[in-house]
Design a protein around this nucleic acid. Structure first.
Lengths: 251, 251
DNA sequence: AATCCGCATTTCGGATACAAAGTTAAGCGA
DNA sequence: TCGCTTAACTTTGTATCCGAAATGCGGATT
């Protein structure tokens, strides 16, 4: 049963993530209530949830605003994710995997490998790889035996993480993207090996490196200097999210 | 001006943490609304917040229940806290402290040292040490330059952390408590040294050790074997929170 | 002309009302 | 006695209404 609150939450979240609502824009209960033709009550609930997710922030007396996000924010989110995923990997290695977990991880790796081994990849191979990648990380997070890790991660940095998805694949040639993916895949294999050997420290170290790599390797492969310039500690400089998927992120 | 929602939130949270509401108890909108003589609206908001804090959990059609907490849960929470605090310490070391931050940390250390150097301590010296300890950790968390760390921590494990407070100081003699505190203080000093020398890795390693120590050292100093027995991986076994301060935690 | 005071509009938080869905329990019938 | 059905109560989700607080604007006064 799709409740009205969930509907509002999903729609507004998609609007924000898609860029239909720009950073800095005001959002109010009455606004979304009128927009989606619902009462103010579910609108209020949804806005509260959005604030908990970090997508919007509350101004004192004047509604909510779409949170502006800077490259520095993305870096911070990645660092938090890295240590949390590292803990998840270590915990999973120390506790051992269940057969189902092992099946899921092996499946993800097999799919990634198949995609990367294809000589003439279809145009959507990046999307398929991202799916396999998501399975790998989500499986480790959610089945590591410490549900608080996943719980902490869910509540944090939904927006920076999404921005990251559009960020990493911009301004690179297809060949470079393929290289990036290959490197990432190799790290998955190494992490899997550490998990199977119950080597918690190695699993943790590699996972942290792998998670941080999402941004670092992207910078390594960016041809011009924009990435580095954008990396400079300038929290005030907003990194606008592209409104159409692969937009002008990391400008 | 305390809004009604905040009031309900504070009262119910205190009730749960104080043990006035036992784990497994049902809690509903109408119940707290009638209890505190407010409408269902703030009661619902408060309950949603409590769920986000992890103090209660929602059952399908049967209201909320106070979350049972096991020693395993406390361990999980501590591990998450450890990596988050480790990240905070590393970040702070790498970015450098502001003068105000340094003042706060030095103040905390000075206060701890003064307390520990007192030969005949007053009876409340543990409370005062805990305050200094709180300042130390909170300062690093909140002023490390990555607000997402603190944000992640706030949302997680309020209950396990409070349980920890009552847990660590039970069933130990005054002399052993003093030893524990001295060890913790020495670690604070070492972390402070690493921070000043901008040694991020050392700061992170020591902070992780220090955070994990909260439980480990407590076990080391427990005389009888109950602590170890309780540590066994038995998530089903609830660790009831004592209703009167230093109750029968870690039974 | 500038500043201050006051009113109106906007917006949020809380309360009550209403409707739907699910669970439990009790009663009835086989 | 057991099972099924129904009815009532609990719980939840949504809508509408009202009050309070804040901001912005406009007018009046110095």
């Amino acid at each position: 049963m799709g409740s009205s609150t969930e509907h509002v939450l999903a729609v507004v979240r998609r609007q924000i993530l898609a860029g239909d609502r720009s950073p800095g824009d005001k959002i109010s209960e009455v606004g979304v209530a009128a927009d989606l033709d619902v009462s103010r009550t579910p609108a209020r609930t949804a806005l509260a949830a959005l604030e908990a997710e970090g997508l919007i922030e509350k101004r004192d007396g004047r509604g909510f605003t779409i949170k502006s996000i800077s490259v520095a924010d993305v870096e911070k989110a990645i660092q938090v994710r890295a240590v949390l995923e590292g803990l998840a990997a270590r915990t999973l290695a120390e506790n051992g995997m269940s057969p189902e977990t092992e099946t899921l991880l092996r499946g993800s790796i097999a799919m990634s490998q198949e995609i990367l081994e294809t000589e003439a990849p279809e145009i959507d191979y990046i999307g398929r790889y991202q799916e396999a990648n998501r399975v790998f990380h989500e499986t480790i997070m959610q089945r590591c035996g410490n549900e608080l890790v996943g719980h902490a991660f869910e509540r944090i940095a939904l927006l920076p993480m999404t921005a990251l998805g559009t960020l990493a694949f911009d301004q690179t040639t297809l060949e470079r993207q393929r290289m990036r993916l290959t490197v990432g895949h190799s790290q998955h294999v190494i992490i899997m090996d550490a998990l199977l050997k119950r080597d918690g420290q190695r699993a943790e170290r590699m996972m942290i490196e792998h998670s941080n790599a999402t941004l670092n390797y992207g910078q390594l492969f960016v041809e011009n200097g924009d990435g580095v310039a954008c990396r400079a500690q300038d929290p005030a400089k907003p990194c606008r999210r592209g409104g159409h998927g692969h937009g002008a992120a990391l400008d």
